[in-house]
Amino acid sequence: MLNISHLTKRYGDKLAVDDLSIHIAPGEIYGFIGHNGAGKTTTLKAAVGILQYDSGTITIDGTDLQADPLGCKAMLAYIPDNPDLYDFMTGIKYLLFIADIFGVSAKDRNDRIRELADQLGLTDDLAQPISAYSHGMKQKLAIISAWLHQPRLIIMDEPFVGLDPKASHLLKQMMREHCDQGGAIFFSTHVLEVAEKLCDKVAIIQHGRLIRSGTMEDVKGDDSLEEVFLELEGESC
């Protein structure tokens, strides 16, 4: 579904991502772990076509991101770490905007907005301007907008930050259902317990380089993911 091959990105003299390769198959929830400034967000932004990269290739379902960016973007949804949405719109206007961009039919958008907003407890607030939303409500709206057009690949940067426990639990269920239906999810997180329980595969990045990746069993063995991560961090220090 998502194939990142030898991705390299520099900011001036700083090497943010160094020859990174990741392959995510349909049906997989892929966790992305690393310390602050390790290159997670840069990789995710490059994978959704926001950030130009220096070398390497990124393909989504076999389509090269640089050759056909719109084709790739039509297949994915992205939720950034800080969901800066259009404050000047109401929640419902924002969702309709996203639905129009992705060409979701009137019937489908009605059904999906109703279902997702009810699940996340946001229905009553959809007429409110986004500027009046809390961080968690914005995150919920971003989640609805991501699921609204039924993308094949969902890329999320720290999606659990700001969510209440119920919404957090629901998001995990939604992620699993999405992958069970043939979709794929690539997300970054600092919550290692969540990654350990939720992910089929995981990658650990350090100073822009991929230092370990594979199935959860391959990466952590008999230890906890936290122990492995801290051990790898310790080695690098």
Binding site: I92, L96, D100, I101, N110, Q128
Partner: peptide, 17 residues
């Protein structure tokens, strides 16, 4: 506080959106 009430929604073009 405005409370959302579901209304009939029409699909629009990308340019119009």
């Amino acid at each position: 506080r405005a409370v959302y009430k579901e209304k009939e929604i029409r699909q629009g073009s990308v340019s119009y959106a």
